[in-house]
Design a protein around this nucleic acid. Structure first.
Lengths: 274, 274
DNA sequence: CTAATAGTGTCTATTAGACAGTATGTT
DNA sequence: AACATACTGTCTAATAGACACTATTAG
């Protein structure tokens, strides 16, 4: 059929000539939580943490999943992720970035659903925010053994474990594909989302100032270093660390005392254009 | 309604309870093309290039767009992008990575369509590959003026121009959002896709070996340097450049002669794990 | 010989790694 | 006093920027 104009074409267009599918967004919300203090002198141990929601409906009833939901016809994926984050965690105006679009054909047993995942970060004070029913923060502990990553999740009541295998897909960019090899706890393909998010954060912390979304307004350099060390999974040397962050922070006149050791200055983030 | 099992739930599930939409994939195929030789001594001038397709159907009839198409119900976005790339360019087994998912509500005038864009790279020899009807390589020239990027496209017959404005969306990660402010030539939001892809490539060339997807098997260091300079948009110093790539390439015993100047050794890519 | 690119040597400035040391609070 | 962390000084190694120089070919 021949149309004389764009308008005429659009008037006759049948949106159902292609099979349609559903799009969801899942939100990987990370933070670094304070653990218990071992003794009065030591710093609080910190834990890399993720927010999960226990499913009380099918599919995957009883399993844990990332906050997520269907994208509406009148909103973008950015808007949907903001809305869902607010609905499911009561958190607003926090860091949110598009992570990856997952499209395995059988990733949802109900029907064909493609999901655009987002990564979100909050500081530890947001952990005490009013959570909705069934939501819970889990401490993350990972163990990398060759090309498999074991992830342990723990929220004080439950312990979850899953295992993901890395496959080098592209050598020049060191791009890995992940495969779930063991997963009794997380719904859908959220184990993959989580591993990809952790890798993304690990990379971005090195070449951006993203870490400050996980810090409160004022923090000590020791606390900041702890956060870097937890995300990177390795110890850093003090002088090198302080040199590295010296142009990202400003010393305030506030101090943190009461630690059983020399008080430390509180710093705040300043943005330094490259 | 209460279900006794996952199976029972799935048997009764109605996929139409949520409004459904369509998903497409668009492929940003980049290369670096040889230009004409100004004189017998000089190296060929190189041009950063992108493949566009002239639309012969509505919507956007007569405008240029990226190769793309609808995702089928039985394939992932990765598979769809591979299939479409082959259908529309005859190219197979080349570099392809997921770039971004674009979801503006009105990005397609026909209906709600969300698109997951991919970036793809080929070396200059692939430019002479059999192209399908209506496909054409365009040289890209960009001009950055404050927060607006002007892009000039040229294929020997037509000259296209569009203009995109950068908005700093997030300060800690220097994440920009792009807005089309002037575009008479490209269909849909493909101007945004193109600008995002160029930025991604510019970043990745600095910290990965991705550039070698744009190089033939054997190349001289001068040619390699030209490619870096075109993508980065700046001149590099020879000794620094050679140091930088020295652990990514191996000198072969082949030489390139006939250039009206000292012959140069041909190198090939070797992967060096970090 | 000349123009053009190929390729190297070297000096300097900056950055990164490592270690050792001093400072200062709480109990 | 002892412990734990805060914070700094300094040596060295590695890397990056800059410039100058030599080498080699087609025409």
């Amino acid at each position: 059929m021949e149309y004389k104009s764009e308008e005429e074409f659009l008037k006759h267009y049948d949106p159902n000539q292609f099979e349609r599918l559903s799009l969801t967004t899942d939100i990987l919300l990370f933070s670094v939580a304070d653990g218990v203090q071992e003794n009065y002198r030591k710093l609080n141990k910190k834990y890399f943490s993720v927010l999960l929601i226990k499913r009380d409906t099918y599919p995957f009833k009883g399993k844990w999943c990332l906050p997520g939901g269907f994208i509406r016809m009148d909103e973008t994926t950015d808007e949907a992720s903001k809305r869902i984050l607010k609905d499911e965690t009561n958190l607003e105006d926090i860091y949110l970035e598009q992570l990856y679009t997952f499209s395995a054909v059988d990733r949802d047993p109900r029907m064909r659903v493609i999901s655009t995942a987002y990564m979100s970060l909050v500081d530890k004070n947001c952990l005490h925010h009013n959570l909705v029913q069934n939501a819970s923060w889990f401490h993350i502990h990972t163990l990398e053994d060759g090309d498999t990553i074991k992830v342990f999740l723990e929220n004080g009541e439950e312990q979850l474990t899953f295992e993901v295998k890395k496959h080098l897909k592209e050598i020049t960019t060191a791009h890995y594909e992940y495969e779930i090899v063991n997963n009794e706890c997380l719904a859908f393909d959220h184990a993959l989302t989580m591993v990809m998010g952790m890798e993304r954060l690990k990379n971005k912390i090195e070449y951006t100032d993203i870490v400050f979304h996980m810090m409160p307004r004022y923090f000590t350099l020791g606390e900041l270093q702890q956060v870097y060390e937890i995300i990177l999974g390795k110890k850093l040397l003090d002088p090198a660390f302080r040199r590295m962050i010296s142009n990202k922070v400003r010393k305030t006149d506030k101090m943190k005392t009461g630690g059983g050791h020399r008080p430390s200055a509180l710093f705040e983030y300043i943005h330094q254009p490259k």
